[in-house]
Design a binder for these strands. Structure first.
Length: 565
RNA sequence: AGGGGUGUAGCCAAGCGGUAAGGCACUGGAUUUUGAUUCCAGCAUGCGUAGGUUCAAAUCCUGCCACCCCUGCCA
């Protein structure tokens, strides 16, 4: 069984119920092409959670050789702004998804949707209601009681059509009338109790300006847009489950075609310990707590990108969570971090950077000598780069100890350690300053132990990284902690329960320090990703200048050192 | 006269009548010139609960329980 695009359906292995359903639809002749849509409302930035929606919509279509339309779902002029559309395009491009088409619903479909509304009026499926918002609410009934029919429910189609056209032409004040679907005021599903299709609001729209004073509402406009676009599977999150019957009602009564788009729902991801919510993040941006919507501590796609996460990691993560069975699924942040490390381990170039330097003098060596460092030990094709060993080097303070804990296999007085890519050195003396702190180390190098040509037979347990004084430069390092304190597993919930946002924030979530990097890093460009060996993954920040390279700490390496075991 | 969902390990999640996949986390151990990576091993006598059907039940039936969502002219 083949699709029109040549893909053999029998060769497709379904990975969830939706895909099983799609295959059945294709075999039954109900689906000719898989068309999905990506319908953001341009009212804020995208989070990691959105990446799940886009990944599911794009990859489901891709799997069946279909297409995905990017459609700005912009039917509410008070919430929407043009600037966001551009950021979505950039996010989508970053994620690697290419829409088959890009439209603003307001421009592309509102004329057609208006015509559908008129047709529904003529069919007796919609009526103009003059109840106020409060009255509509009061007559809707409750969770357990039926609603009451609007007194305007039984107007004739002619009367409704005349009134509706007058609404459109601006004859009535904002909020004075609505167009409502004539469904069932006693339906057990409240969404079916004559939902509003159009409201009156004189509001300037970022795309269509003042063309309209009436605006179609989600329950009506969304299924109609899907139909107009040829969407076959409208994949949204489970928050819309209750709206599925409304969707189907509008498809049947507004569109009327036998082969209709299907709405199917997946679960939302809630990352533990992560604050989301436009309202809250906006507070942090406006309050100066963060540098902007792309702050590396933010869960926005632009934020994690700046932090150094890769698109692959984000996509692999959302796919690992799966379709989901409940409305929200809470996932520990470590689950995301796993995929970040996994990808970075494969692609990040290794470099030596000393974050907290301790000077070491090699007493039996003079001048300097070239050594080589693998760019990625897991990928030979990544090649090698040169670095220098000399008589004055720097190592991490934590790689030397006067009182070493058990199993400490770094440098101690009288002990030896391997310098990565260079020689084994032996520490003869820790030279203290007048405060009793370590000023520098006096060491000797062991000839015949050079990396790659060691014939000394000396066994050395530890290997540490270093930079040579004549081969390093100062860089700025930005280290991040979670924005919110660890005790807030579900920050948005805590906020709703009355916790103050200021009390929730971790006081030192951003710290800036300097470090000594090997010269190899001098040409690094924003978004370049490195592994600072034995420390973590770092990504060049866009704030960098020619004289000041800034690295964002993306994520640390795992640390398996357990001194007390 | 409520409706819609969901219950499988600390967190996700397969499973669709044949005797509990996989991943994260965690714990051992091997390899390692990154205490990383990689590798290997361990991790539910148990599938919300009580019954029933069956040679056989997480899967089918019945009752009960728990949790989530829904009363915008937001999407």
């Amino acid at each position: 069984m083949k699709l029109a695009n040549g893909i053999d359906v029998d060769s497709i292995v379904p990975e969830n119920e939706l895909e099983e359903e799609i295959i059945a639809d294709i075999k039954a002749g109900r689906t000719k092409e898989v068309v999905t849509r990506c319908p953001p409302e341009p009212s804020g930035y995208w989070y990691i959670g959105h990446a799940k929606a886009w990944t599911i919509n794009f990859e489901t279509a891709q799997k069946f050789g279909g297409r995905t339309v990017l459609r700005m779902d912009d039917s509410n002029p008070v919430k929407e702004e043009g600037e966001f559309a551009d950021s979505y395009m950039a996010d989508l491009e970053w994620l690697g998804f290419k829409p088959a088409k890009f439209v603003y619903a307001s421009e592309a479909y509102f004329d057609e949707i208006y015509k559908i509304a008129e047709k529904m009026i003529q069919n007796g499926d919609a009526y103009v209601c003059e109840l106020s918002a409060e009255e509509v609410s009061a007559t809707r009934g409750t969770l357990t009681e039926p609603g009451k029919n609007s007194p305007y429910r039984n107007r004739t189609p002619e009367e409704n059509l005349k009134l509706f056209r007058e609404m459109r032409d601006g004859k009535y004040p904002d909020g004075s009338k609505t167009l409502r679907a004539k469904i069932d005021m006693s339906h057990p599903n409240i969404n079916m109790r004559d939902p509003v299709m159009y409201k009156i609001a004189r509001q300037h729209h970022y795309r269509v300006g003042d063309k309209w004073c009436i605006w179609p509402q989600y329950d009506f406009v969304h299924p109609m847009e899907d139909c107009l676009e040829g969407t076959t599977y409208s994949l949204c999150d489970k928050g819309f489950q209750d709206h599925r019957v409304v969707y189907e009602w509008f498809v049947e009564h507004g569109w009327g075609k036998k082969y209709a788009p299907k709405q199917r729902e997946f679960s939302r991801i809630v990352l533990e310990n992560v604050l989301t919510g436009k309202r809250y993040l906006k507070q942090l941006v406006n309050g100066g707590y963060v540098s902007g919507w792309d702050d590396p501590r933010f869960p926005t796609l632009v934020g994690v990108r700046r932090r150094g996460y890769t698109a692959k990691a984000v996509k692999d993560f959302v796919k690992s969570v799966g379709w989901g069975s409940t409305i929200e699924v809470s996932v520990p942040y470590s689950a995301l971090e796993y995929y970040v490390r996994e990808d970075l381990n494969k692609i990040a170039t290794r470099a030596m950077v000393v974050l907290d330097p301790l000077k070491v003098v090699i007493t039996n060596f003079s001048g300097s000598e070239e050594c080589e460092i693998e760019n990625n030990p897991n990928d030979e094709a990544a090649g090698k780069h040169k670095c220098l060993f000399s008589n004055e080097i720097y190592i991490e303070k934590e790689d030397f100890s006067l009182n070493p804990p058990p199993k400490y296999n770094r440098l101690v007085e009288g002990g030896i350690v391997r310098l990565k890519g260079a020689y084994i050195i032996k520490c003869n003396k820790a030279v203290l300053n007048k405060n009793g702190e370590i000023d520098h180390l006096e060491c000797e190098y062991l000839p015949n132990t050079k990396s790659g040509q060691d014939n000394s037979g000396i066994k050395c347990k530890g290997t540490i990284h270093f930079v040579s004084a004549n081969n390093c430069f100062k860089v700025t390092i930005r280290e991040f902690k979670n924005l919110v304190k660890d005790e807030y597993k579900f920050p948005a919930k805590a906020l709703a329960d009355g916790v103050k946002i200021e009390d929730m924030l971790q006081p030192d979530s951003l710290t800036e320090t300097t470090a000594l990097a090997e010269n190899f890093l001098k040409d690094a460009k924003p978004e370049d990703k490195f592994q600072f060996m034995r420390k973590g993954y770092y990504c060049v920040d866009k704030d960098s200048t020619p004289n000041n390279l800034i690295f964002n700490s993306t994520i640390s390496l795992k640390d398996g050192f357990k001194p007390n075991k």
